[in-house]
């Protein structure tokens, strides 16, 4: 039965299976030939930095997608984490400090609190999805607006700045390895770290196997002894933690925070996952694929920026790419007639 495929056959299969990736690779080579500085370390660093945040969110949302769910609240949750971080790391002597009674807090403690809040929101979402049986699309749409509302109310919709030196130093590179590392921003390392963690989870732990099993056939998974409700709750909780972490980094990187951050990050993350081969019909998806998907998406943005396109065109192009990605993914299943 097994036939040894030649290299050419396998290469062709890869090209057929990943048309968007190939197209963008060719496009970026073309752009690189005509536009200066496209192939530069600076630009690569920029690309990877942009990718990091989206990739972290994509990792969070991937479990929801693999189990045929989704999470539309990712961006707003990240924004809440961002403002929470901002509020807690504001200098005690900062003139327009939002909560003047609040002491200056250690950034690691802040991180812990922010992650805990993310976990709580994620758990709540998970409970709504798996115990109240609200379809994930609706449940997370609701959570999205609730989180946004909370965020606007408690920050008075004001931007938050004036961060403590400890916090700024960490992201400015006075403390290794966060700063410039041979031209690269160190916080790319977080993408690497969490990518590995999630790869490990999906491939080497029972929880990861159960996620695929639920996506493959939820009823069969339950019958096989998987506690689907608990697993799903954990998936959304993990997602919440990832969004919170992304929000924390967002504040650190941009040196400020506001409730309007993170708009449509979930859509970009979902798009990245889909381009990277996470199947919309459940049960399929790899961390490597997600990384490629998110990278490709960010690359597309940078290409548009380099060729001098009106930034608003980005939206249209991105939409088209997402639709084509899903259409081509679905084709793999319907074309087998």
């Amino acid at each position: 039965m097994k036939t040894q495929q030649s290299f050419a056959q396998r290469a062709w299969a890869f090209i057929k299976g990943n048309p968007i990736v190939i197209m963008l690779a060719l496009l970026s080579i073309a752009v690189g030939c005509f536009v200066d500085n496209f192939f530069s370390l600076d630009n690569l660093n920029n690309l990877l930095c942009n990718t990091t945040i989206r990739f972290l969110i994509a990792l969070g949302v991937s479990g929801c997608l693999i189990t045929k769910g989704t999470d539309l609240s990712a961006g707003r949750q990240a924004a809440l984490a961002a403002t929470l971080t901002g509020v807690m790391v504001q200098r005690a002597d900062y003139a327009s400090k939002l909560f003047p009674w609040m002491p200056e807090m250690n950034m690691w403690l802040v991180l812990l609190i922010v992650l805990a809040v993310g976990a709580a929101i994620g758990t709540a979402t998970g409970v709504i999805v798996s115990y109240l049986n609200v379809p994930p699309f609706i449940a997370t749409l609701g959570v999205q607006t609730i989180v946004y509302g909370i965020n606007l109310i408690y920050t008075n919709a004001q931007p938050i700045g004036g961060f403590s030196d400890g916090f700024k130093d960490f992201f400015n590179g006075k403390i290794l390895p966060m700063g410039s590392f041979k031209g690269f921003n160190g916080y790319i390392l977080f993408a690497l770290l969490f990518g590995l963690l999630f790869w490990f989870m999906y491939n080497k732990t029972t929880h990861g196997k159960y996620i695929y099993a639920i996506g493959g056939n939820e009823n069969a998974a339950e019958v096989s002894g998987v506690n689907v409700r608990v697993r799903k709750t954990i998936i959304y909780m993990t997602a919440g933690i990832m969004y919170a972490f992304a929000g924390f980094l967002l504040t650190g990187k941009s040196g400020g925070a506001s409730a309007s951050m993170g708009v449509s990050y979930e859509l970009e993350a979902i798009a990245g996952c889909t381009i990277g081969g996470v199947s919309t019909t459940g049960g399929i998806g790899t961390v490597g694929g997600m990384l490629i998907g998110v990278l490709v998406f960010e690359l597309l943005k940078i290409i548009l920026q380099f060729v001098g396109a009106d930034p608003n065109f980005n939206y249209i192009v991105q939409g088209l790419v997402v639709i084509s990605a899903v259409a081509m993914d679905i084709r793999k299943y319907v074309a087998k007639k």
Binding site: G216, A220, S279
Partner: peptide, 11 residues
């Protein structure tokens, strides 16, 4: 309630 179609025989 039996097979998980898209998953491998091993899974």
């Amino acid at each position: 309630t039996g097979i998980m179609g898209v998953l491998s025989v091993a899974d």
